[in-house]
Nucleic acid binder design. Structure first.
Lengths: 112, 112
DNA sequence: TCTTATGCATAAGAAAATTATGTATACTTG
DNA sequence: CAAGTATACATAATTTTCTTATGCATAAGA
């Protein structure tokens, strides 16, 4: 998902988090928003994003609604009630993970 | 690498970081150290760790030395000069990644 | 007209885990 | 003393999750 080929496994969480803040977003918009927030350092590829969106939808986390804008179709995704709960738990899980990762990367913090 | 099946791609960096601090460590010791630092939340599996160590060694990042302790063999790994440089760059890269991830998870920080 | 941007989608391949298995010694506990 | 847990390495099969490549389609800009 990133140009630097770093961590895997965080894409679904990122998507859920963005939708938690935005009510509805479409795929391309998500790629641009991530790019914008990370100053171009994360580039979400369509090959990763669309299957992730489809999977989350299949799991009942997202609902969709298509709109035609400027003769082009946009497929908007929104969190379902279940998706909202999932977003919160996934974000919490990821934050927990990041804390542990930081303990490993910055051992001095664990000593104070 | 973790019991919570979270992020992938950080194991090699974690290994390099630990070896940066410890001169030499053997595989089992690494699994225990990680478990200890993260209060049991990260459980590195052998199926992930050993191939990673072998790969880093093949790439010239690690050198090895075996020791027999208590009739059991330990294979100690140390950073080579190249491995030391790699450790620093990989850690920097991961920290950069974590910063961007935090911008996504905590959008308010990006505004102040 | 050709490239870039917008917008969706899927398939092939690669990377990096998990899970399962195998070997071997040492310690602990009932 | 038998069985389970801990120590210690290793590899193979499978799964997950990406990247890369490809395809279709419209719009804008050079």
């Amino acid at each position: 998902m990133s140009s630097s080929k770093l961590l895997k496994g965080s894409l679904a969480t990122i998507v859920l988090k963005l939708l938690e803040e935005n009510e509805k977003m479409y795929g391309y918009e998500i790629t641009q928003r991530v790019k914008e927030i990370t100053a171009g350092e994360f580039k979400i590829t369509e090959g990763a994003l669309y299957p992730t969106l489809h999977k989350l939808e299949a799991e009942g986390m997202l609902s969709t609604e298509t709109q035609k804008v400027d003769n082009r179709i946009r497929k908007y995704y929104s969190l379902t009630k279940e998706g909202n709960a999932e977003a919160q738990s996934k974000v919490a899980e990821l934050e927990e993970f990041l804390l542990n990762l930081q303990k490993l990367l910055n051992p001095k913090l664990g000593m104070g």
